[in-house]
Nucleic acid binder design. Structure first.
Lengths: 191, 191
DNA sequence: CCGCATCCTCATGGATACTG
DNA sequence: CAGTATCCATGAGGATGCGG
């Protein structure tokens, strides 16, 4: 709430009063994937000014959205409730992600957020992804960074191709699949 | 997109690039209830500077979110797709709406947005609301400003009390109900 | 080093006057 | 009525400093 309050008795205005400032929701996005140190947040948010990041983290902490511990910063239970709102924005914003521009930054944790927003909560199979040299997984109920044991399939490719497959604008054959191809389709392709 | 772009290949960043500036989502909120003239938007958004409102409407129009016609401004089909994202923010922001502060503005169309976000898409009965001297209705599939014919019940009261009933923090008995009380409960109280 | 705080510059927002 | 134009206050971006 560094900006002025809208002073409106309205849920949207209240939400924007607390997470509507520049960079704030992007910080929340990073923390939705897991706890992060200050320096990790800096690295994940190219262009953020150091004082601004500190300001936002302080405001988020005062509002009970973020808490800081030994391991760095993480979302409180209340902060994690922002996932639904973030997912809605992610889904809408996906309409602007036709192809990846050269000067645009990309980080695999953003793909984690996108897949959580786009895929159903439960999936019939679990797969391992390797996108732009980074490992992420789509489990039956969880999606995150890193690897899982015994995936049904391993899928490799570019981020924009993967998003195309998930949103139905590209075919699964545009990705490289090792292992159970049907399982990969079941996990990634909308029904 | 008056602010600088985040230049991130991420749905959330893209969404904020286009609707993340101050006042932008509040304009969208107004237009989600219906088409509005420039002067109506000014009245509904107390505190907005006239140049900012004009700037935002121009940006939204350029982005294909808003279109202007003889009747004023309205959302395009693409703009209406923001409803899901707005609803998520409205639901989260509702957690900050304990009781209405004296200096906080209130407009009945904000209640329309809140009810659309909080109530299920289909309801078993239709009721008429009269809140703070304004008429709004909760139909079986639609919610809006104004009156409907042959409501099953008429509910009167304050906005914060109504929100309390819908979110389960207050009882229906806190509102004045004329007509079929069970129908009012079915339309307003979460199961 | 990491985690900020300070300082400076410039873009953005806010308030109001003004105009086609 | 529907915006522009203007001016000032504030916030963002970027470099640097500094204590633990």
């Amino acid at each position: 709430m560094s900006g002025k309050t809208y002073a409106q008795y309205c849920g949207l205005a209240k939400a924007l009063d607390h997470v509507g400032d520049r960079w704030t929701l992007l910080i929340v996005r990073e923390l939705l994937v897991g706890g992060r140190r200050y320096s990790q947040l800096r690295a994940a948010l190219p262009g953020v000014a150091t004082n601004l990041l500190a300001d936002r983290l302080r405001e988020l902490t005062e509002d009970g959205i973020v808490e800081s511990g030994e391991e760095g910063y993480q979302l409180t239970p209340f902060g994690r409730e922002l996932e639904d709102a973030v997912n809605g924005l992610v889904r809408w914003g996906g309409r602007w992600m036709t192809e990846r521009d050269e000067h645009e930054m990309f980080r695999p944790e953003w793909l984690v957020v996108a897949l959580r927003a786009l895929l159903p909560a439960r999936r019939p199979s679990q797969i391992q992804l390797r996108i732009e040299d980074q490992d992420l997984y789509v489990g039956r109920t969880k999606i995150g960074l890193g690897t899982i044991a015994d995936p049904d399939a391993v899928v490799e490719g570019r981020a924009d191709t993967l998003l195309g497959v998930v949103t139905g604008h590209a075919k699964l054959s545009a990705l490289r699949v090792r292992g159970d191809r049907a399982a990969a389709a079941a996990a990634l392709v909308r029904s």
